[in-house]
């Protein structure tokens, strides 16, 4: 003889689910979401090359560790919602804290236009006797109007 499912267990399950949904719904509100305050740095990456694609630069060979034989490195920044003129600046620091390269100010002027995305890069060329690719942790800092806005580190190893 086949045993039938107990109907009270089904009611119990339905009740539990309804209670859980009601409990969750009681905490819900419908306020508008907080919006970010204007211009933003979306990302800063160190890569082997900055290629051009779709009107913007894209990182090629992005990594956090590079070999001693690397001839040059790129720092690629991506920014959003540019509605005013700004100045970008990249500073590269060697493992001992010495400033290896300063890009100087790089102005971005949208004029009267609104730019939803901007990419910018700076290149560090290693040259014997000038900028040696020393082993250790290097740091790149992106300045926005002379204020640090993003930073990233990478390692150079044998």
């Amino acid at each position: 003889m086949r045993r039938r499912a107990r109907p009270q267990a089904g009611f119990l399950l339905a009740g539990l689910i309804a209670l859980a949904w009601l409990g969750a719904a009681a905490c819900v509100n419908f306020r508008p979401a907080v919006q970010p305050p204007g211009l933003e740095v979306e990302s800063l990456v160190v890569c082997r090359n900055a290629a051009f694609s779709g009107g913007l630069h894209v990182a090629e060979g992005a990594a956090r560790t590079f070999g001693l034989d690397i001839p040059s490195l790129f720092a690629l920044a991506s920014l959003r919602d540019i509605d005013r003129g700004i100045a970008l600046r990249f500073k590269w620091y060697a493992p001992d804290g010495v400033l290896a390269r300063d890009s100087g100010p790089m102005p971005v002027d949208p004029g009267e236009k609104y730019l939803d995305k901007v990419t910018a890069f700076d290149r560090l060329d290693f040259a014997p006797g000038r900028i040696e690719p020393r082993e250790g942790a290097w740091t790149v800092v992106l300045f926005l109007d002379e204020t640090p806005a993003d930073q990233t580190s990478f390692n150079i190893k044998k």
Binding site: Y114, T119, F121
Partner: peptide, 15 residues
Amino acid sequence: PTQRRQRPGRPARRP
């Protein structure tokens, strides 16, 4: 070193 992408016809404000 910089490249921009603009949405045509958009005013100078955040969307």
